[in-house]
Structure formats: C-alpha cells, structure tokens
C-alpha cells in the first residue's frame, strides 16, 4: 500500500492544476488589482493604495448597495424557508406513487437556463402579462397594474431560482431522520404537533441552515434578476460589478467591489463552517 502513495496525487494533478491556475491565481489577481490606480486615460497603473476602497466608503451610495444586497438576500432566505419547508416535509411524508415524478419536477428548474426562468416572469407580471390580462378581463382593474421593475419582481425571480436548492437541502435532512423516532415520541404521549416540534424539526435544522447559507451566497453573487426584473433602484452589488467591468471598464474599482463581496461572503462561509460544518451542502448537491 505504501508504494501507492503517489497515485492519488497523479490522479488529482489535472484538477488541482486547473483550479490553481484558473481559479486561485485569478482570484488573487482580483485582490491585487483592487489596489491599482486607474489613470484618466483609462490605463491601469500598478500601485498599492487604498483609493478604490476609499471611493467605496466615500459616500453612502456604494455602501447602501451592499446593505441592499444583504437585505434582499435575507428576504430571499426567509421567503425560501417559508415557501420551501412545507413542500420538503410533504416529500418526506408522502406515500404517493407520484413521489418520484414530483421529485424530478422540483429538480427540473435546475435544467432550465437561469435567463429564461428570470425573463419568464415578464410574461406573468408585465403590463400585458397573465395577471393583468386576467384582472382586466374580469373587470377587477381598469388599467394594468405596474408589477414589474420593483423589488417584489426581483424577489420573484430570485425565489424561483433558489427555492429548489432550499427544498432539496431540507428534504435531504428530513429524509435522514429515522421515522421510528416520531412514532416513539407519539407512543410516549406526544401529539402529532409536539412530535414534529420536539423531534422532526430539530433534526431537520442542519438541512435548513445549509439551505439558508446556499441561498444567501447565491443571491449575493447574482445580477440577472435585478437587471431584468428590477428598476433603477433595485441594483445589487453584483450589478455594480457588472457595470464597472463590462460597461465602464474600470478594472481597479470593479476589482475592489469584487474583493469586498468576496470578503463579506468569505467571513459568512468561514463562520458557518466553523460552527456548523459545510459538508452538508455538498451532500445535498449530489
């Protein structure tokens, strides 16, 4: 066995090389670039100064985007939880023969491009979308309600993207619970609700917290729903990064924004991993 010790390293070589050169080094570059200067001509000058960060904190505009990102991410987490726990519990308890079909259906959105899922809400919420069409037809309103280009529309897009992640995380956790535990609780005199509250709910918490972390991180890193479904006041930090890098080509400032986002999520993921362990998330994604 001892002479085999080189083998795993040979097998790992290609992926480690790929991740090192295409991920680790580029991300380090982002951090390095965030200290560079942008000349008025548009050229980037190597430097070590905190001007880009000073610019971020100079007035309330940029920090307010970061705060909005965190707020929207927390709203998304909370709504995903409210919308996702009951379906996950349904999957756990159902004895329907349709269960495999329903499970595939919940995974189906993973296979549909994010951009299509996002823009599909225009067909529902738009001035001539489904809701306005139906409401006008039955005479509930006499002119279209403006439902697009606000935070609620952005949340719709985010929720549709992230809800399956939450449901699956919770389901995997629930599915690992020995059902005889609830039976035991009930035979000892617990009501159905007490058994859920005292046994099932606490045991499902690892999945709940893993789902919350994943939803939070994914929300912070996306710019598509605010861009397509939001108005000018709904931009999040990722939108700003996109505009600075792709729009105005301000690499140093764009890098500083990316570093701030990365730092924030890094602290959150690190803290989570420290106290709760991150492997639960990877378990679910299998």
């Amino acid at each position: 066995m001892k002479s085999d010790s080189w083998k795993p390293w040979a097998l790992l070589g290609p992926s480690l090389t790929a991740v090192f050169f295409l991920l680790v080094i580029p991300v380090c570059f982002v951090v390095v670039y965030s200290f560079w200067l942008r000349a008025p001509s548009g050229n980037d000058i190597p430097a070590f100064q905190f001007g880009n960060y000073a610019k971020f904190f100079a007035d309330f505009f940029y920090p307010s985007l970061l705060i909005r990102t965190i707020r929207v991410a927390l709203e998304t987490v909370l709504l995903c939880l409210v919308m996702g726990y009951i379906p996950a519990y349904f999957f756990y308890r159902t004895e329907s023969s349709l269960k495999p079909f329903l499970m595939i259906l919940i995974m189906l959105p993973f296979w549909i491009s994010f951009i299509i899922r996002t823009l599909s809400w225009i067909n529902i919420l738009g001035d001539s979308g489904l809701i306005n069409h139906v409401f006008l037809k039955i005479g509930l309103i006499d002119r279209p309600l403006a439902m697009l280009y606000n935070e609620a529309a952005v949340l719709m897009g985010l929720l549709q993207y992230l809800l399956p992640f939450m449901i699956l995380n919770i389901y995997v956790s629930l599915d690992g619970i020995d059902k005889s535990l609830t039976e035991a609780a009930k035979s000892l005199g617990c009501t159905e609700w007490q058994a859920f509250k005292e046994v099932t709910l606490p045991l499902s918490l690892p999945g709940v917290s893993a789902g919350c972390l994943l939803v939070f991180v994914l929300t912070c890193g996306t710019y598509l729903p605010p861009m397509i479904l939001g108005g000018p006041g709904n931009d999040m930090i990722a939108n700003l990064i996109f505009k600075r890098i792709v729009g105005t080509l301000d690499w140093p400032f764009g890098s500083a924004l990316s570093t701030i986002l990365l730092g924030l999520l890094g602290v959150i993921v690190y803290t989570y991993n420290r106290y709760l362990g991150i492997s639960q998330i990877f378990k679910t994604l299998q």
Binding site: V30, I245, L262
Partner: peptide, 23 residues
Amino acid sequence: LNTLLLAPIMIPEVVLGVALLLF
C-alpha cells in the same frame, strides 16, 4: 483538497467571471 476543488460552488459567479477575465 476536496473542499478546495468544490470551492467554486461557494464563490459568487460574478467574481469568477471578473477573475478569469482579469487574468
């Protein structure tokens, strides 16, 4: 190493996009 190789899942995609482009 397993965590390192799975890390791209937890890195915001927008940062991945910027990083590789910058490189």
